[in-house]
Design a protein around this nucleic acid. Structure first.
Ligand code: SF4
Ligand code: SF4
Lengths: 159, 159
DNA sequence: AGTATTAAAGACTCTTTTATCCTAAATTAA
DNA sequence: TTAATTTAGGATAAAAGAGTCTTTAATACT
């Protein structure tokens, strides 16, 4: 199990890429998909969710694409996670018990609920812009790697 | 996305139940499944993984069942997670990038790798016995709830 | 020896996630 | 107005996860 679904990871990567490109004009999803080495159709579906949540604005036709509805600086990672995976991760019990109540807490309750909060803060704190800066500084590596890429990487041990 | 797969959660619940029952004799999987309100066949599959990892001993035939290969006191939660879900959660990047290297870290690297460690320590620290005690003190609630149970719960708002 | 009990193993089904493909609707530009 | 471009949306397919069912093998008890 990964922490986030693949869709969510792709969504985050796309958002970081968009933040890097700035938010001046609409960016075509096809271009983003090409940069990330993803299927454009698939990415379209994912970004649709962000559009429906009001995080992105979209525009059809030539010169169309998507852009953030507000400054990337103000958009936190958790907003993207919430739109795609939901907030379950930060709100549910690690043991998956329903009918939670602090009156009769299940095992792990204390430690996990404390931890959930820390995790949540992490995603609430990180803004897209900060991540974008970080990517640029360190040398971008957002691209989904194909099998060939991985072979290449293993040969070169740097990418 | 949940933190742990359902199989893993079931495995942990079963293990806690077993720890509560003590480790004197083999416990029948059918009985555990009944207590947890799970399919016995399904639980068998899950516990098989723990047996194959050497965490449990199994024995067929009448009076057969499973028991821990060592004291529940010594068994940490992470061992069960490792056997069922693997350690990916504690070892992989939150953004799912391959070819990780601290030389050219991807965004989130610092925060997430720090956090991964905390999460790992949490699972490394909690022993089955401690959880079992906790369950008993607070009033056991390991049972998987059926839809009927949930209705019932919502009526009573306590379980 | 024979029967009942129990885990192991594998075939199979159902659901969810991931991914692809095709068509429709909106929009721009010529 | 026509053609090209681009997101939206639905149908479908493939893969993984969750769960069921049947058969087999081991074991204990009579
Ligand atoms: S008691 Fe705590 S850990 Fe258990 S379900 Fe409730 S919040 Fe989650
Ligand atoms: S750079 Fe850090 S976060 Fe990125 S893949 Fe490597 S370990 Fe994971």
């Amino acid at each position: 199990m990964a922490l986030l679904s693949k869709s969510c990871v792709y969504g985050i990567r796309a958002a970081i890429l968009m933040a890097i490109k700035g938010n001046e004009e609409f960016i075509s999803i096809k271009d983003i998909a090409k940069d990330l080495n993803l299927s454009a159709h698939f990415l379209t579906k994912i970004l649709q969710q962000l559009t429906q949540e009001g995080l992105l604005l979209s525009h059809r036709g030539p010169k169309g694409g998507v852009k953030f509805s507000r400054e990337p600086k103000l958009i936190k990672l958790i907003e993207i996670v919430a739109a795609i995976d939901g907030l379950e991760l930060f709100e549910e019990c690690a043991l998956g018990l329903h009918g939670c109540g602090t009156a009769t807490p299940c095992p792990l309750h204390e430690k996990w609920s404390e931890h959930k909060l820390v995790l949540r803060r992490l995603f609430e704190t990180e803004s897209l812009e900060k991540l974008a800066d970080n990517v640029q500084e360190a040398g971008l590596r957002l691209r989904t790697l194909s099998q060939l890429d991985i072979l290449e990487f293993n040969k070169n041990k740097r990418l």
